[in-house]
Nucleic acid binder design. Structure first.
Lengths: 402, 402
DNA sequence: TGAGTTTTCTATCAGGCTGATACTATCCGT
DNA sequence: ACGGATAGTATCAGCCTGATAGAAAACTCA
């Protein structure tokens, strides 16, 4: 629809599709010989050879030693490599804007960190300030790529809010005070690069799926436990966004018949109980003391549990009841293979997953595997980088919006 | 992988993909001229003409009058038509085996109905009996197609249980006492046709998506309210099966913290409350009388509500509370565009959907549209027919299992 | 009525892409 | 060193597509 419209004939679509197939199989099944690629993709040896040559020249594929011979000429292993290519990622968080140059392998090669100065946090014009900052971080990343003698090939944006994916428009992001902000087209105009904008919980799922704890898992769910409670959902290896990009907003899950008689303005039943604000509030009500110099945080509660705090343990157990209800319902609806625990509380996954498992065994038909986020705070950035990189090197990904 | 392996070159894959694209756009956007097909698919007029010619010869596309001229030669409208092609469908239900010859348009042209004789219902060897019956119904359908001078081109099987889709194997279907029954490969061996086997709740969703209340809706959820409680899920226009084909088993949803202290062997929390068995049990406990000649059914309860029964109304309202909790959680997780109410209780959708809506408004971020099943008892059959037909005429569908 | 216009449909052809085939390269065992 | 075996590469016919030109069908206007 928008490609470089080659002069004649097939416009290269066929070979691009097949190139994508080769990249796909290499990314998934590690280093492979040309023969094995042919067997897995169904392409002939001749075609694999020619396309692999093109990808080698592009730098998307590199040779990686050779296999020991099985009686004949040893096969040369080919491996996907993103070293030669970069994307820019801007993560616009509640309290800071992070930038990163990421290569197509998901390695962060350059970082930018801009904490939001406290005055701006609740300023009337903070939406504009945060937007300008995001644009300037993107520009800075482009310059940094230039200094390395390279060029950023696409831009990924992570935002804590609802995103209209097709347009790259942020519909609503309360933490930034953004409403209907067309950050995608603004960035495209300034950089001339393809841009992808996505919700950060969704990107956490994407990142863990491609580069983290969920590699090779087609159906997974990534819990984001923090100020807000959300979940990123991958079904059949694809991100599930829902009809209004509101899928996974499980902060609003209803956890009992009594929930039907109450309204939850701005936050949900689950979120009010297990979000970090709700957690610390309950901790204070139970007389759990804050450190001398600052307010209590969720991490403090988990530290107290680890050091044997009885009150904190009781609070954790009660909280886990509600998390377990949410996860149980997620599992009965989606039947995921894996549940990943991430977000601010991801560091306490060791306290969370065993309790979850105990509560679920025997109560739902199939209890999935559970794992802590492997990418931690960078998960959303790496997810955004992955989407941006695929926007450039893959074919079907773009076409998916039919 | 299994195709007719043409002698040379491209093996026709490219044109098959483009043919599928044309079929797709015709099925979705009604009758179109060759010009419009070209515009929508991105194919050139020459290619559209040639492929349309092939599809016309195959009988998958027919001419459908012509548009009034806009100053030049009037365009001939082309329409997808499945009249010329048939598939066999076998629906193996709890109390009967239904067979149907269905054309590619989803019209049932021949039916077979084999009620299960009461003696068999709980016989020790009922699994074998029901399997033989399913195979013989398929054979009968093949013969019926022959009598019409046609040939069935594929077989679809609907089963109330867990299905391994890739193998066409029924993992577990308690109502039939089937465990690890390879009904797909058995049918393929006997008929030589491609076979697709799927859970009947999933097929209800597929049927309503393609031919019923959910046409054109990419993200929908089809509630099946009956003896069991389940839901078929379409995400991005594709059936979501889950990692163990257990997605949508919401009978096991947990509806409150107290659920964490109970176990549900063989049926779930939700199912025990709102399944038809639970419903009639509660009705009896509340003194709602059964008809003289037979036990009370769910339909009786709904009839009593319609005729102003106070007890029945109270029971309905309480039941709706639990259904609402389940639907609310479905919506927060998936954000569907539409919720379809089907199954045995689908006929009472007029009593159910308004109550659901009232309970959800203001409690979840976005209340989706709701609708009654448009296909009723035939939804699963039509869904199975659609999958089977696409197995033959489409390309990407098969390839999806990468 | 008939010429011109407009739009649609169809035939022809060059170019790209693929698979089959034949060929070369590299290693192993003897 | 030499055959056997396996991997990778060059050549070529055939398919498929888009561009182009041409034929067909309806409308408009004299």
């Amino acid at each position: 629809m928008s490609g470089p419209t080659s002069s004649t004939a097939n416009a290269g679509t066929v070979s691009r599709v097949n190139q994508t197939a080769i990249l796909d199989v290499l990314r998934r099944h590690g280093p492979l010989s040309r023969q094995e690629i042919g067997a897995r993709t169904g392409l002939s040896a001749a075609t694999v050879n020619r396309l692999a040559g093109q990808l080698l020249r592009k730098g998307l594929v590199v040779t990686d030693g050779q296999q020991p011979s099985t009686g004949g000429r040893p096969s040369i292993l080919l491996r996907y490599s993103g070293r030669a290519h970069l994307v820019s990622v801007v993560h616009v968080g509640a309290t800071r804007t992070e930038g990163a140059l990421v290569d197509f392998d998901g390695t962060i090669v350059h970082r930018v960190n801009r904490p939001v100065v406290p005055d701006v946090l609740h300023a009337a014009d903070r939406a504009t300030i945060r937007l300008e900052e995001a644009l300037s971080v993107a520009a800075e990343l482009g310059a940094a790529a230039g200094e390395r003698g390279q060029r950023s090939q696409a831009v990924g944006v992570a935002v804590p809010g609802v995103v209209d994916g097709a347009e790259g428009r942020v519909t609503w992001a309360p933490a930034l005070d953004w409403r209907e902000v067309p950050v995608g087209s603004l960035l495209h105009d300034r950089t001339g690069l393809p841009v992808v904008v996505e919700n950060d919980a969704n990107l956490l799922a994407v990142g863990e799926h491609h580069r983290g704890a969920g590699q090779g898992v087609q159906d997974l769910v990534a819990l984001v436990l923090g100020t807000g409670i959300g979940v990123g959902i991958m079904t059949g290896g694809r991100l599930h966004r829902g009809s209004r990009a509101a899928a996974g907003e499980i902060g609003y899950m209803l956890l009992g018949r009594s929930s039907l008689t109450r309204f939850f303005p701005g936050f949900g039943d689950l979120e009010s109980r297990v979000g970090s604000a709700g957690l610390t509030r309950q901790a204070r009500e139970r007389g759990i003391a804050a450190p001398a110099d600052r307010p209590l945080t969720a991490a403090d509660v988990f530290d107290l549990v680890r050091s044997g705090g009885v009150q904190a343990r009781a609070l954790l157990e009660e909280t886990l009841d509600y998390v377990a209800l949410a996860v149980a319902n997620l599992c009965t609806v989606l039947d995921p293979e894996l549940v990943i625990v991430g977000g601010e509380m991801g560091g306490a996954a060791d306290l969370i997953t065993p309790g979850l498992r105990d509560r679920l065994v025997g109560r739902i038909p199939h209890v999935p595997r559970m794992a802590a986020s492997a990418l931690g705070d960078d998960a959303a950035i790496i997810g955004a980088a992955e989407l941006a990189a695929r926007l450039v090197s893959d074919f079907a990904y773009v076409q998916a919006t039919r």
